[in-house]
Structure formats: C-alpha cells, structure tokens
Simulated assay, not measured.
Amino acid sequence: MEVRIEPFFDPATSTFSYVVNAKGYRECAIVDSVLGFELRALRVSTEAADKIASYIREHDLLVQWHLETHVHADHLSGADYLKQELGGQIGIGSGIVEVQRVFREIFDFGSEFEPNGSDFDHLFECGEKFNVGPLVVTVMHVPGHTPADVAFLFGESVAFVGDTIFMPDVGSARCDFPGGSAENLYKSTRRILKLGEETRLFLCHDYPPDGREPICMTNVRHQRHANIHVRDGINLATFKDMRNRRDQSLSLPGLFFPSIQVNLRAGKLPVQNSRGRRFMQFPIDSI
C-alpha cells in the first residue's frame, strides 16, 4: 500500500513536519508540527501550523493522530493548536514521564504539574502498533538525544526518526540535554540502520552545509555508507568520544526554554492569568 507523505519546512527552526496517509484514504497523521515563536517579540505565530491545516482541508483528510517523536527543545509543538483546529489525538513515547520529572525540578513547577504524561492523549510503548487508516505503524524507542525519543515505522519502508539521525553530511543529534546519552544514541542509530536498506528515513531537521538546500529524506543504505558520525565501521567508543567533545562546544538552542515548557504539556501554552496574560520561566544556573 502506497504511503503518501507531504513535508512542510519551517525555515526559522529548520524543522520538517509531515502529513502522512495511505493513498486513497482520508485518515492521516501529522508528525512533529510547529507553532512559531518570535523570541524577541515574545509572540506566537500559527503560520506554519496553518499551512498544514490548509493542506488537510484542501485534501479532505481526517486527522487521527498528532505524533511527536520527542519533546522538542528548538521549536514549539503545534499539536495542541492543530488538535483544536482539526481533531485527532496527540501521542508521544511513554518516556515523556521521565523527561517531565527532570524538568519539573528545573522549572520548579510545583504540585500543579504532575509528571504523568496526562497532557497527552496516548503514551506509546516500545513495540506498540497502531493504525493510521489501513497503515500499520510500529513504535521504536530510540533514546539518546533524550530518554523519550521514538521513531514511527509505517509498514516496512517508511520511518520518521525525529532527531535521532540527520542527513549523512550532518551526522547525529546532540546528547547533552538532561537524560541524554551518547551511548544510547549510538545504539538507537544502529537499531534504525538495521532496517531494510531501502527504508526511507524522514528527518525532523536538516542543517545543510553551505551549498545545498534542506532535505527531508534519506535511506538506510545511504546512511550506512556515508553518515559522518554513524556509518558502518564507526564503533561505540569512537562515536562517544566525538559526540561528547562536540556537545561540549554547543550552546543551548535559542528557543530551548519556551519550547520545553510548552512541549512538556503537549503543545499547550501557559494558562492565562486573571488579566489574560501568559508567562514563561527562565531558570538561572539550573542547566
């Protein structure tokens, strides 16, 4: 059965989002949607999410799932906004509970925030299967970038891998966020690269070197032969040394603090106070 995939690129955050359905069927999933946020102006924008909503309506699709590969630290999730606009359930890996526990302490959320994943409609377990229309989707737990990362394997030929792996000339994701692990990331990439060689891998981000345009898709064969960080022949010790040294040189993403606070809650913005205003926190000396 043919899987139809429509990518959407947000240049402000270098993020790819996707609408996925079986050709000839209305049921679809939205993967890793984006809600815009201008840090200097402290304003939310729905422009990126509205493009997805327009596509859904234009093609008369029925949203079953808003799928999150992980708690993104570089953009706000559009899942809650799109759920309100289009319906559907928001799903993420069950490891979200561990991530919520860590950041509850960092942000000092207090008793009003329960780290139980209840803001999401469904928490996926590793190996769990579910349907998008007639398509069978398998959940793969691929920790390393964060403890909660998952990949979604549609049938046997298409996988949405989030930040676990990038284009071959970019390599792999950082592992220095709370709960991250270079060893776990290496093992997760090897798990993905054991899929069939022609399996198409759809990425959450691309940060292309000068001279090429952003690309959303690669395949297992190309990754195994050419990925600068995890191609065949690179062992765990070499990868860990490279990844740990590289991560020490990286600064936090520009939208780290607003993204985490919103995405821990399935894309829900902070609750308005009595004056109709919303506030976010920026902890000092806590990361």
Rank of each mutant, 00 (worst) to 15 (best):
F107T: 06
P209K: 13
F103D: 09
P209F: 08
V137N: 04
D60K: 03
M140F: 15
R43F: 03
R43S: 12
S274P: 00
E156D: 14
N263P: 10
K51C: 11
D163K: 04
L86R: 07
D80R: 14
Q272I: 01
N273I: 03
V150F: 05
C204E: 11
V230T: 13
R57F: 05
R57G: 13
I96Y: 05
E98K: 14
I96T: 03
R275V: 01
V158A: 07
I234T: 07
F16Y: 14
F8C: 07
G87I: 01
V137D: 02
L255A: 05
D74K: 05
Q89H: 08
L42A: 06
L255Q: 03
N227D: 08
S118F: 12
H75S: 13
I96A: 03
F109L: 15
V102G: 00
P134H: 03
D163A: 13
S274W: 01
C204P: 02
H145E: 01
Y25A: 11
C28K: 04
S157E: 14
D163Q: 06
L193T: 08
A48H: 06
N263W: 09
P214C: 13
F124E: 00
R104N: 15
V158Y: 01
P134W: 06
N263D: 11
F257W: 12
M280E: 01
S118D: 15
L35Y: 03
E85R: 15
F152L: 15
N184S: 12
E213I: 02
F9Y: 15
G36W: 02
R191N: 11
L39H: 03
G127C: 10
G127W: 07
T164W: 06
H141L: 09
V31H: 02
E38R: 07
F37K: 00
L135R: 01
V230R: 01
V63G: 10
N235A: 10
E114K: 02
F152T: 06
G78Y: 10
E6D: 02
S14C: 14
N131P: 00
T146H: 00
E114M: 10
Y207V: 13
H225T: 04
G87E: 02
G133L: 09
T138S: 14
G211M: 06
R104A: 15
Y207C: 08
G110E: 11
L201V: 14
W65E: 09
Q84W: 10
M280S: 02
E183Y: 02
G87D: 09
A53P: 01
S77M: 08
Q89S: 14
D241C: 09
G95K: 03
I92E: 07
P258Q: 04
I90V: 15
V34P: 00
H122Y: 14
F282N: 04
D285R: 15
R212L: 13
K194A: 15
L193C: 13
D50N: 13
G155M: 08
L195D: 06
G196H: 14
V271N: 02
G24E: 08
F154H: 05
G110S: 11
L76W: 03
P134F: 10
G36M: 09
H72Y: 07
V3T: 13
